[in-house]
Each structure stands twice: as C-alpha cells, then as structure tokens.
Write a protein that binds this DNA or RNA. Structure first.
Lengths: 245, 245
DNA sequence: GCCGTTGTGTATCTTAAGTTACAGAACCCG
DNA sequence: CGGGTTCTGTAACTTAAGATACACAACGGC
C-alpha cells in the first residue's frame, strides 16, 4: 500500500466548462457559485490516486482541500487491538472535514483516510481556500453546511454506539447501503463490515446469518443480496428487539 | 422546567469596553477581532437564563447564535429508554455548533441542550451572523476552529464508545473533570455521570466503588474526592485491563 | 425528630458482545 | 488440478454491561 502517491501527474483543468463538468456532483456548490468561487476552482489541480492509497494518516498535515470528483474515501479510526470504526465516507459532492482541521489552524487530528476506489479530486491550495472562504458566500455556505452535516452524522453514530444493539445497527447500516446502491448487492466482506461498525468479524457473520434466516438478505462470498427490504427495515427499526429467531 | 424563558429582559451591552469585558473568555475571538467583528458584536443582546432551562430541544429552530459569557450548557441526546449521552458542553469561549446547523441552512437536528448553571450569553441575530462571517476573517476562523474542534472531540467520543471498556471511560472522564476543577471534588450524582457517558446509574456506582477500592477516589453523597491522581491515570490508561480487584 | 425524597450500595440474574478455536467453502493462480 | 489464501460458519466459552430488586443512608422541610 503506497502512501498518497499520484498515479498520474496532476493536470490543470483550466476552463469553466471542464470544471463544471468535473463538479457535476456538487450541485450545492456550483449552482450558486459566484465569480470568486470559480476563480478559486480554476486554481485547483486535478489529482488521481489509486485505490487503497492512504490519503492521510495519524498526524500528517495536508496543504490542500480536496474536492473529490470521482471515487470514494473512507475516514476511520483504529484501535490498538486491530479494530476499526468508520467515521464517515467522502464521495463526490462532499469534502473531507478533517482536512479542514488542518487547513484552518494547522492542528492535526489523528484519523486515517484511505481511498476505497481509484480517486480523482480537485486539490485547492490552502491560501486559495482561505481567500475563497472570505470572498465567496456560496463557498462559505457550502463548507459550513458540510461541516454541520458531518457533525449531525457523527452524533447519530454516537447514539447508535451508545444505545443500539449491534444487530439493529447492522440492519440499519445494510438498509442505507442498499439504498445507496439501489438494491444492488453489497460487495463487502464480513470483516469490512465489522470495520464499518467498530465490531468484530464473528459478530457480523453471526448477525448476518440471523438476518438471512429472517429472509431479509441472502449471503454469498464477499456479497450480500437484498431479499426483502421491508422485513429488513422492520428489524432495523427495533422490532427485532424480541429477537424472533 | 421552563422552556427558554428569559429570567431577565435582554440588555444591549452597547459599548466596546463592556463587550470586551463580557468576552474575556474568548481570547481566540477578540484578540484578533477586526472592526467588522466588533460591529457584529455590538448588535448582540445579552440574555440570561436560569439553570436547567431547556435552551433548545428536538427540532426547535433558533434564530440566534449564542456566545456564552457565563455558565455552561450541556448538549446531549436521549434514548427512548431514558438513557442519555452528552455530546459536548458549551462554556464561555465556545459556541454551540448545533446552533450553526440551524443558522447555516435552517435544517434542524434533534439534540437537546440544557443550561447546567445560570447562563448569560450574547445572542447574535442570524443576519448579523452571516454578515460577520462574510466580512470578518477573525470571526470566520473562530467559527471554523470551533467546528473542527467539536468534530475531533466527537470522534474521540466515538472511539471511546466503540473500543473502550466502561471502567476506562469512567476513569478518563474523572481525570478530565479533576483537571478542569483543579482537583476540587466533583459535585455530581452517579446518575448524572451515567448520563454523561451514556450508561446506567448502577454501572457507574459499581465502577466508582471499584475505583474507591483502588484508592483513586473517595465517594460521598453527591460528591467525589480525588485521592490519588496517579493511580487514577494508571487505571484510565488501560493498565486496569487485568482488573486487579 | 419525623417523613418523604433523593442518592447510594449491592447481590443476583440475564443478555449482548467479544473470544477462541476450528472446519470447510470458495477463490485465485501457477 | 493442486495448494495456498481468503472468506465464512459455528460451537463453546468468557466477560462486560445492563436489568431487577431491594436495603439503607443522607438530606431537606416542616
């Protein structure tokens, strides 16, 4: 696993039309973008990373803000026993808020980020980022909105961990995945799912098997098929409390 | 428990010196404050709330940003079984980031916030907030810094919940409290501590009793005395893994 | 001092979650 | 197709956490 190496040299996308095309997934940003915002975007360079590249880790400082144009990255924390929890995922239309941590005050916070797929992203240099923040209302709002969304999402994570049983969390997580994939099978191993939720592979296997028995899903090696979204939702909503086996 | 009622009518602090005095706990804000920032601050009104006032709840919208001048508020989530987790605490020098959620895009996010003590705070109306964000670099940086700090803090909460045993979390939490209070006794009931950490009163009682046996602390009704900070730290750092009773 | 209220201590029981330890299936590649 | 690797299934066991159910202590009015 190589460390934030570029698989291709960065390109300068230059003109307005190219940029607009690249940022098609950022409606919240470009639809209201003002001239300052475009100016900043035109200074950005298009970078590419291979899948599994470590984008940043423990206390690495970063001098750019990345707007992901294609692919996705996972931001997570590790425990010393080898477990992991995913904090959030950065995909086109979003930005890595832990990046901001760095950009704002240079303080670094120990999280890991890794490309899940090959990634292309527009890297905005720190000074341009700050300038745009000052000049462009649309960019400012976009940044703030992303930040507060993340915050809400992390609050949900916290309540899940604090209050919900693991099987409910798995069921809810599955629901979300199937929604994102429009009911297409999920291509993850049990171990990867465990790393999403901060638990162990065995627990995930056990719970998935349960859900298969309840005919919510169907299991295959490295793949999960949706069988009945309604029963799955039912379980996820906590009706599974009286764990009917 | 009354709902965000003012115990006194809001006052307009008006002049520069009064403001500067009120915001003594916001060095990050006022030391670098520019004229726009002061201008915004001068539009703020000083509000007062009694202890235990619910500042906002589930899906209440708020039209102001509050800079707390005196007192503290607890931001938390509730489970349907009556448990709670504290997400964070807002004290002089900080601002309530869930407020921002509202202010930025009007979207509300279901958290509770309650005054722990009597509170005085400067309320900045939404339009002035946005204007200052646009015009004042210092205010902008202050807001962003606060947001990213919260984010880091919530990430820590997540890893704690996901990976750490409850007794370690209690020990660490105690450490932090004693640091804040400069080793003065902590005046909270076991139930309140349970609500901090998202667990139950019985668990807290049990674990505190353990810590007392290990001579880290000494218990009294509604009060916890620090006995030996070094053993407490030792436990908190996970040396307590082999739970030596 | 009496009495209701609030806070604490604790023992017992139940359950969720994690651990250990394999077996075997599916897959990958030479 | 053979052999290593990765993934899954599962049973048995251990431990953390939560629930239940009281007893009792401290405190706060009146």
């Amino acid at each position: 696993m190589n460390f934030a190496t570029l698989s291709r040299p960065p390109a300068t996308p230059g003109d307005y039309d190219t940029l607009k095309h690249l940022l098609a997934d950022y409606p919240g940003l470009i639809e209201t973008a003002d001239s300052y915002c475009w100016k900043m975007l035109s200074t950005a360079k298009l970078h590419s990373f291979d899948a599994n590249t470590v984008l940043f880790h423990e206390s690495m400082e970063c001098k750019h803000l990345m707007l992901i144009v294609e692919g996705s990255a996972r931001v997570y924390k590790e425990s010393d026993e080898g477990r992991e929890v995913t904090l959030y995922r950065v995909e086109p239309g979003q930005l890595c808020v832990h990046n901001l941590n760095n950009l704002v005050d240079g303080a670094s916070y120990p999280v890991m980020a890794q490309a899940e797929t090959a990634i292309r992203g527009l890297a905005i240099p720190r000074p341009e980022f700050h300038k745009a923040l000052a000049e462009s209302t649309s960019f400012r709002n976009y940044v703030l909105r992303t930040l507060t969304e993340r915050l809400s999402h992390m609050a949900d994570l916290i309540t899940g961990l604090a209050f919900d049983r693991l099987d409910l969390r798995v069921a809810c997580w599955l629901m979300q995945q199937f929604e994102r994939s429009r009911s297409q099978p999920i291509e993850l191993t049990h171990n990867e799912i465990a790393h999403e939720l901060g638990t162990t592979r065995e627990m995930v296997s056990r719970i998935l098997k349960e859900l298969e028995h309840k005919r919510c899903i169907q299991l295959a090696r490295g793949r999960i098929y949706l069988q009945c979204k309604y029963t799955l939702r039912l379980v996820g909503e906590g009706k599974g409390k009286q764990r009917l086996k």
